[in-house]
Design a protein around this nucleic acid. Structure first.
Lengths: 209, 209
DNA sequence: ATACAATTGTGACCAAAGTCACTGTATAAT
DNA sequence: ATTATACAGTGACTTTGGTCACAATTGTAT
């Protein structure tokens, strides 16, 4: 699908043309790091396909999954970071192979005033990401690990578009800032409750979850 | 101090004039709720003086302090909420008596395109609040309660502009989504370590904290 | 087929935090 | 001055989650 087709309901024609003529398409492989914590943000990624994983990294290197960026979406952090050339507070990793438009940060400011559809897109994106961060805060503050795990699995399944997840307990523990043994135990409990099936490096979510 | 004086370094003259001629000043008392969770956002508060407390409320009514809004600042949530007339996800309470400009949400969109200084102000505000939310997430995910408590006390002191805090253990527990007994014990430990002094409804922070 | 590495399962133990129950203690109300 | 009330202190216990140690299992490489 071409660009104009893909974004015709999101951006006005003039902006679409400008994007097509001036913005380059980048491709990265699954596992590639798009943006490392502490780096200066140089481009705004606008996803054509694939999934980006956005995570927080603490001083000791521990990780916490924040949210996924899907096709036709972008990342709120980069919007606001780039306006003031601030370093990023997060890490962006390709969860699958990803194709994206690398919008140079310089045009951001001008487009915001010039194109109402860009302005709407930016504000909508920020709002959605803010909501997701609040949701993450809710979970950390008010929910227990077993509930967080269930949500994590459902979210992962939604992102992957499949009820079969290719992931190890260790990876889950890392993304949830927990420990492998605890995750293994909680997963085993969910399996006993007939909510899912466990395999090596794979988890099948059942409808009861 | 008049408006023009207060914001002359933030907003351009034309915008300042528009604000002065069209925006009403509201006053609320300490403890008043400006915005309840679930309510539709009708105005953007731009603080003239005083402090607003922004907190998350979970389904069971439990609270978690997110951040404070100080003089000359505004709240990122309302910016993005108002663009789409979404209900708020948070509660805003006056921590002190507060005077603020109640900017009608209708002008937000137009000003964003029309006034570069407004656009900068909005983006800067959003960025700062995003950072604070990430910080909150860090603390919840990676820090223990005693470290969180120290930060909470320092932040409260900064907001109040005093090393003497007028607050009960119960209130602290509520704002940190913890329990009174645990907070009392941690405070007692800090007192034993000569980091602070405890009184009824008051805490004196010492320089060693 | 055998050896190796990565993954998962589990028991025992520990630390952090929440809960329950009850005792003091300071302040406010009468 | 006496009572009532909100606040603070504390021991005992429970739950949750993290850590350690090691066994069992599965998949991969030679």
């Amino acid at each position: 699908m071409n660009l104009a087709e893909k974004f015709k309901n999101i951006f006005e024609p003039e902006l679409l043309q400008l994007i097509e003529s001036s913005v380059s398409i980048s491709t990265v492989r699954e596992g590639d790091v798009i943006l490392e914590a502490g780096q200066i943000v140089r481009i705004i990624p606008l996803l054509l396909n694939g999934i980006l994983k956005i995570a927080r990294i603490d001083d000791s290197g521990k990780e916490l999954l924040l949210y996924y960026v899907h096709s036709n979406e972008s990342c709120a952090m980069t919007f606001t970071c780039c306006m003031q050339q601030y370093p990023s507070e997060i890490r962006a990793v390709a969860e699958t192979d990803v194709e994206f438009l690398a919008i140079p940060i310089g045009v951001m400011d001008e487009w915001l005033s010039r194109f109402p559809t860009w302005k709407s897109f930016v504000m909508r994106t920020i709002r959605n990401r803010l909501d997701e961060l609040l949701d993450t805060i809710d979970q950390l503050a008010f929910q227990k690990l077993d509930e967080r795990l269930v949500r994590y699995l459902k979210e992962k399944s939604r992102a992957a578009g499949s009820s079969l997840l290719n992931i190890s307990h260790e990876e889950i523990a890392t993304e949830m800032a927990s420990s492998r043994e605890v995750i293994s135990r909680l997963l085993k409990k969910l399996e006993n409750d007939k909510k899912l099936l466990l395999y090596r490096n794979q988890i099948r979510l059942l409808k009861e979850l």
